[in-house]
């Protein structure tokens, strides 16, 4: 009989192996597989960020598409208007989203609870409608990256030589690795943050605001920090997504369904307020999408129903159920007490 901690060690070993396998996908896998996994990884990054907001900071945002969209548009601006290489332009996307999050936070943080959700949604609509007025980037109809931009991207020629593939396949591999890196960094950063003093404060706020305040936690400052940081991560992800998509339009970049609705379902199904939840959720999402691909929008109905059932009967999602049944914890957030207890 394995103890819970040795089971956890084993599952950590498996996680490391999975990560290694993912790194080698562009070397051994097909291009379609690389592109599919790229979408999965970017959705995972969005879900990790949203989980941080809604699951840990209690900020239920329905306006994350604002940051995906502005990240994408800033990246396009960098490449098309100022002639940047797409890679630094991704960073520009993240920074732009971070700056956008400041006025949005100023407005929405005055609203509590459900008002906040509507406030973020309206904010995202305002950004979408304003960006549609940006004529240099195609206004309401949008624009494409100049032909060959991704093929000349920094690092693509080297990857091309290394793997012996076409330029477009090398560009896919590069964006894939960036997405993988972003996902891993987001996951680990979330873990480190939540284990830190600030993260502890955040969870204290979630459990009881008054009590947290009384021991010196400043809810507003901590929540604002999470909001701005997750905007940064979401903006980076948006920029990266649209390098791969190569075409941007206000409706696609600020799509509430693609960048917020799916992300919410992924997080809820996997387990909101748990760190591995989004990983589980994104796998379920991907499998559902593939299995029900031939039935039109049926997978959306199924997704919605699963989300409702999870919220009604298992609030911590699939991962929460798994942890409860097996005692396995990856990335545990609980701190061990100093006094050893018998187990």
């Amino acid at each position: 009989m394995m103890t819970n901690s040795s089971k956890s060690t084993l599952s950590r070993g498996i996680t490391a192996l999975v990560f290694l396998a993912l790194v080698f996908v562009p070397v051994i896998g097909s291009r379609a597989m690389v592109q599919d996994l790229f979408m999965v990884l970017t959705l995972l990054v969005l879900a990790l960020n949203w989980n941080m907001l809604a699951g840990f900071a209690g900020l239920v945002s329905v306006g994350q598409q604002a940051f995906v969209g502005i990240g994408a548009y800033a990246m396009f601006g960098g490449v098309i208007l100022w002639g940047w290489d797409p890679l630094p332009a991704i960073l520009l996307g993240g920074v732009a989203a971070m700056f956008l999050s400041l006025p949005i936070a100023f407005f929405t943080f005055r609203l509590n609870g459900a008002y906040f959700a509507i406030g973020t949604w309206v904010s995202a609509e305002i950004v979408r409608l304003s960006v549609a007025q940006w004529k240099a980037l195609g206004g309401g109809t949008g624009t494409s990256l100049p032909k060959g931009t991704t093929k000349d991207m920094f690092g693509v020629p080297q990857i091309k030589d290394l793997l012996g593939v076409s330029s477009s396949a090398a560009a896919d591999a590069l964006t894939y690795w960036l997405a993988l890196g972003l996902a891993v960094v987001t996951l680990l950063a979330g873990y480190v943050f939540l284990r830190s003093r600030m993260g502890l404060g955040l969870q204290a706020i979630r459990d009881n605001v008054e009590a947290a305040r009384s021991v010196g936690v400043d809810p507003l400052r901590l929540k604002a920090l999470v909001f701005v940081l997750s905007a940064f991560g979401t903006g980076l992800c948006g920029a990266l997504l649209f390098i791969q998509i190569t075409r941007v339009s206000p409706d696609a970049a600020f799509s509430v369904v693609d960048w917020t609705a799916f992300v919410i379902f992924i997080t809820v199904i996997g387990g909101i307020g748990t760190l591995p939840g989004p990983v589980v959720g994104v796998l379920v999402f991907y499998i559902l999408q593939r299995v029900l691909a031939d039935y039109g929008t049926v997978y959306l109905i199924v997704l919605g129903l699963i989300g409702i059932v999870i919220m009604l009967f298992a609030r911590k999602g699939l991962w929460g159920m798994f942890t409860e049944k097996t005692g396995i914890e990856l990335l545990p957030l609980r701190h061990k007490s100093l006094q050893r207890s018998e187990r």
Binding site: I272, L300, G304, G307, I308
Partner: peptide, 13 residues
Amino acid sequence: LPPLLVTFGLSVV
């Protein structure tokens, strides 16, 4: 959170 998410799911359904 639960009512928001449930009605959100309902909307999609």
